[in-house]
């Protein structure tokens, strides 16, 4: 691992002042469950690490029925799971956090880190860059793409977004707060994720000298929500496909549904098709299946990942059925 300078600012303003104007100069260190491995493998080699450990304002969980939930970026998965308010009001968020197995990761990994973790694409991890290219040629379309994207994969990015929390947070209409050199801005989580067009970009809408400070989730009133993950392996692995749904029911009919797929595209993938299929319908096997089918209607699988189309379809269907069954928050 390359040597680096280690900084421990005590305020978010001081932290961003320590970040460089180019990606790669500095990295923000929270739990380090992803970043340290990337550094040890020379995938990233920052000259400076900016630790968030001493910035008190980045922690904390606050819930108010009127305004909803605020999660500080350095809240750990364990803290999230230990929160009775979250358990009561956002059961699908708890499901998502439970998908992050192992107490070691839960007690160290942070919610901000989950949103900003880098793709698991093995070409990226082997040093071929974010877009997995060798001599300018993309490796994924003809390579081992069994875990890669089936949606939004027209290139040059083929990886899937690895976040466990993002699909359900987007489905719930979450926003994030970003600290920059000039101050604080808010951005919807949906718009926080972007598909990079060059290997020098990142997969989230931050400037190199900005950082995520808070996650804001609207109140869950009347919302049915659920997350469903399809996995080859229960623990210490990422799902093959996931779907998060949130909707209201009025008179037994679905109102304003949100369907967001995970692990199928370079960004968490809101499916307008599935939402459209679901809107105004009663929830049942048939309508849920229709929505699942609609969610993958525009899928363009690569040479080795056609099976993920079916998995995403089933994940959407099961998430819808689970959400309807689960009852809404009063």
């Amino acid at each position: 691992m390359q040597a680096f300078e280690y900084a421990r600012p005590t305020t978010a303003e001081a932290a961003v002042a320590l970040l460089g104007s180019q990606w790669g100069d500095s990295e923000v260190l929270a739990g380090g469950t992803d970043l340290v491995s990337l550094m040890k493998d020379y995938v990233v080699s920052p000259k400076r690490l900016v630790s968030l450990k001493d910035i008190k304002s980045l922690g904390g969980i606050e819930y108010k029925p009127k305004s909803g939930l605020r999660l500080g970026a350095t809240v750990t998965f364990q803290e999230l799971l230990d929160s009775p308010e979250i358990a009561r009001n956002y059961p699908a968020l708890v499901q998502a956090a439970q998908g992050v197995t192992s107490p070691q990761i839960r007690s160290r990994g942070t919610v901000g880190g989950d949103l900003c973790q880098r793709p698991r694409c093995w070409y990226f991890r082997l040093g071929y860059g974010l877009l997995a290219q060798s001599d300018g040629k993309p490796l994924v379309p003809d390579g081992d793409n069994r875990y890669h994207a089936i949606l939004g994969n027209e290139g040059p990015a083929y990886f899937v977004n690895p976040s466990s929390l993002a699909p359900i947070l987007i489905a719930l209409g979450a926003k994030v707060r970003v600290q920059g050199q000039q101050g604080v801005r808010e951005v919807s989580l949906h718009n926080f994720f972007i598909t990079p067009k060059s290997a020098e970009e990142r997969e989230y809408a931050l400037q190199p000298n900005e950082m995520l400070t808070d996650i804001l989730v609207p109140p869950p009133e009347g919302i049915h929500m659920a997350l469903y993950e399809v996995r080859q392996k229960e623990a210490l692995d990422w799902p093959l496909a996931a779907a998060a749904v949130a909707f209201k029911l009025s008179g037994g009919k679905v109102d304003d549904p949100r369907v967001v797929l995970g692990h199928v595209a370079p960004v968490p993938w809101p499916s307008l098709e599935a939402e459209h299929a679901l809107e105004g319908n009663t929830v049942g096997e048939a309508s849920a299946d229709e929505a699942g089918k609609a969610a993958v209607s525009r899928a363009t699988p690569l040479s080795k990942n056609a099976y993920k189309v079916k998995l995403a379809h089933v994940a959407v269907k099961r998430a819808i059925l689970a959400a309807a069954k689960g009852g809404a928050n009063a």
Binding site: G32, Q104, S107
Partner: peptide
């Protein structure tokens, strides 16, 4: 429990 290989 935490993993000391990634803790500075």
């Amino acid at each position: 429990p935490q993993m000391s290989c990634i803790m500075l």
